[in-house]
């Protein structure tokens, strides 16, 4: 998503990117970002907490208006939970990232993409 932000910005459209993965955002360096230290999937605030979501969005909009530094990341002050065990469990053996079903679908998609690529190559050789 950072790549898309950079493309839009380079072509004259100001952007602000939301992030729950600070290291990835810092590497890709979108023009402006707000970092929320929540689990992946809750990028714009806590589910079923409209006040929290609204606060996140207003911070992003404010950065859009006031930001002057390319690549700036604003760290939001909200904490997901007092117990931060969710961070330790990410990508651990007891918590595979995708369900078995989702992983199977992902593998099937990759296989289909590889197959399509092979077919394109085969046709262009002819």
């Amino acid at each position: 998503m950072g790549l898309v932000a950079r493309h839009l910005e380079a072509n004259g459209i100001p952007t602000v990117t939301f992030s729950c993965a600070r290291d990835i955002t810092a590497a890709v360096r979108p023009p402006r970002s707000v970092f929320l230290d929540y689990p992946l999937g809750s990028t714009c605030g806590r589910p079923h907490d409209p006040a929290n979501q609204r606060a996140v969005i207003l911070t992003a909009l404010a950065l859009l208006e006031t930001g002057r530094t390319a690549g700036e990341i604003v760290d939001l002050p909200y904490e997901w939970s007092a117990d931060e065990r969710w961070k330790q469990l990410i990508f651990s053996p007891e918590q595979p990232f995708l369900s078995e079903e989702a992983e199977a679908r992902r593998q099937a998609g990759l296989a289909a993409a590889r197959q399509a690529k092979r077919e394109i190559k085969a046709t262009s050789v002819d």
Binding site: L40, G41, C44, G45, P47, Q53, I57, W80, W86, L89
Partner: peptide
């Protein structure tokens, strides 16, 4: 969505990742 932290959070509130109502 499947690529989210399904152990820690939920995606049953669309506004938490696609803030259309806000």
């Amino acid at each position: 969505e499947e690529h989210y932290d399904r152990h820690a959070t939920t995606v049953d509130d669309v506004n938490a990742f696609f803030p259309i109502s806000h």
